[in-house]
Amino acid sequence: MKTGTLKQILLITDGCSNQGENPAHVATMVAEQGITVNVIGILEDDQTEQPSGLQEVEDIANCGLGVSQIVYKQALSQTVQTVTKQAMNETLQGVVNKELKQILGDQQSLEELPPEQRGEVMEVVDDLGETCDIEVLVLVDTSASMGNKLPMVQEALMDLSMSMNARIGRNRFSIYQFPGKKKPLEQLVDWTAQLDSITSIFSKLASGGVTPTGPALKEAMYQFGKKTLKRRFMRNDFRDIEEA
């Protein structure tokens, strides 16, 4: 079974958006493109209750068919890798469920199989999770209030790269921050397999209270599109040569 490359956007933020279109709506569009949107909301150390602003975190992930989690910054490393892997597994289950429906008829999905048969199907999902290729575009909110959390974000991303690279499948990561200086989105790290060498990438903090989550998400979707388009051209070239 082939799954192709899984595509994910990982949004790390600490509050609600206040500029541009509704991010949950944008997330729906992104999901339509086959890209999962996962969101991690970071709490302040002294926050004991979930502030209302972070309700948006769950909405975006729901619309983006992804996973959301709200954590304190200390737990960030472990959360980032759990969320990424969980979303990956859910996507793969979706793929397997589709296959199952084709084989067994419309009403069958993994959860509806008797437990005895579920085990074998699960082995397939586990295998796919270990071997599939994955691309993660990390979108970091660098508005002023995130300042004290960015060192932890950086560490969490290095840890994510370590977790993912222990798999057999290939990984590619890129990191963007928003808001950028003049644009809603600014690239920090271009597509790379390893994030272990990133140091002090979040040097420039945006001042002012603008958090354009929606526009940033939209821009991130275009970044994915651009890259695949470029690669498709290259691949096609090679294929022509091979066929000839």
Binding site: Q78, E130, D159, S163, A166, I168
Partner: peptide, 23 residues
């Protein structure tokens, strides 16, 4: 064996202590 560790806890995790891979 040979795959990436499914579940771990930071304090007990080799990679967290930078003493090896999470494999």
């Amino acid at each position: 064996q040979g795959r990436s560790i499914k579940e771990y806890t930071e304090f007990y995790d080799r990679a967290y202590w930078k003493m090896g891979e999470r494999k």
